[in-house]
């Protein structure tokens, strides 16, 4: 028996909005410790990892580890049926063919449940090495979304350069070039608006706009986003999911192929 109840049901709705454009389907691994999802997009350029801790749920029970393969478009359709203030409960048997989503209105006067067929997905699970990143940039998530959107008008790629002066996002293309520089905020009035840069060594990397824009679909989840970079490894874009977990996007950089 698996059951997870989340009073803040809209967090789950937002999680789905944050991954459904990138992934068609994915497996939710449910264990005693919580729920995890890891999947690459179709082109294998990016990887999404969602972690929802058991303690974050208002009720959590998972007798046996189960893997639930879901069509994320269908799941998203179902979650669209839940109101923002609904309490969402996910339920499944130990060897499930189906998963049930139950939505309760805060007054308990309306209760709906939706059952969805599960899929058998054979997905590769990747090991993500522990990395001490050379630069970690924390910034307002809305600002990051805005930058990605603005720069993608110029070209297919965005260069992110982090130095001790600050972080520079730039793009170049047929219409010209664009540069946006953010400096570390000196006085922090509001924590959510702060830009904080933690840098061991300067890093400059190039990434495809398309994916960055898809990552920013997670913006409603959290007021802050963190970008972690090291030379020649994937960028990590991380958003907190309320108090209960986090979503991480890994994006492979574009690199000059010298050896090929």
């Amino acid at each position: 028996m698996f059951e997870a109840r989340l009073v803040q049901g809209n967090l789950l709705k937002k999680v789905l909005d944050a991954i459904k454009d990138l992934l068609n389907e994915a497996s939710w691994d449910c264990a005693d410790s919580g729920i995890q999802l890891q999947a690459m997009d179709n082109s294998h350029v990016s990887l999404v990892s969602v972690n929802l801790r058991a303690e974050g749920f208002d009720k959590y029970r998972c007798d046996r580890n189960i893997i639930m393969g879901m069509d994320l478009t269908s799941m998203s359709k179902i979650l669209k049926c839940a109101a923002n203030d609904d309490i969402i409960t996910m339920k499944a048997q130990d060897n499930p063919d189906n998963v049930t989503f139950m939505f309760e209105s805060p007054s308990q006067e309306k209760v709906s449940d939706y059952e969805m067929k599960l899929m058998n997905l054979d997905q590769e699970h990747l090991g993500i090495p522990e990395t001490d990143y050379a630069c970690v940039i924390k910034m307002p998530s809305g600002e990051f979304a805005r930058i990605c959107r603005d720069l993608s008008q110029f070209g297919e790629s965005i260069v992110i350069a982090c130095t001790k002066e600050g972080v520079r996002f730039s793009a170049a293309g047929d219409i010209g070039t664009a540069n946006i520089k953010l400096a570390q905020t000196s006085s922090v009035d509001k924590e959510d608006d702060a830009v904080i840069i933690d840098m061991q060594e300067p890093v400059t990397l190039t990434f495809a706009c398309r994916y960055l824009n898809m990552f920013t679909k997670a913006t409603p989840l959290s007021p802050q986003v963190s970008l972690s970079m090291s030379p020649e490894v994937p960028l990590v874009v991380e958003y907190a999911i309320g108090e209960i977990g986090q979503i991480q996007y890994f994006l492979a950089p574009k690199i000059d192929d010298q050896d090929n």
Binding site: L47, A172, V233
Partner: peptide, 26 residues
């Protein structure tokens, strides 16, 4: 095609070139 953008000559890597598959622990 895009003469003036030196950025576009870079090659997109894939995630699998950085992370390798692990067997699922169950």
């Amino acid at each position: 095609e895009s003469r003036d953008s030196p950025l576009e000559t870079k090659k997109q890597k894939t995630i699998s070139q950085f992370f390798s598959a692990v067997s699922k622990k169950r």
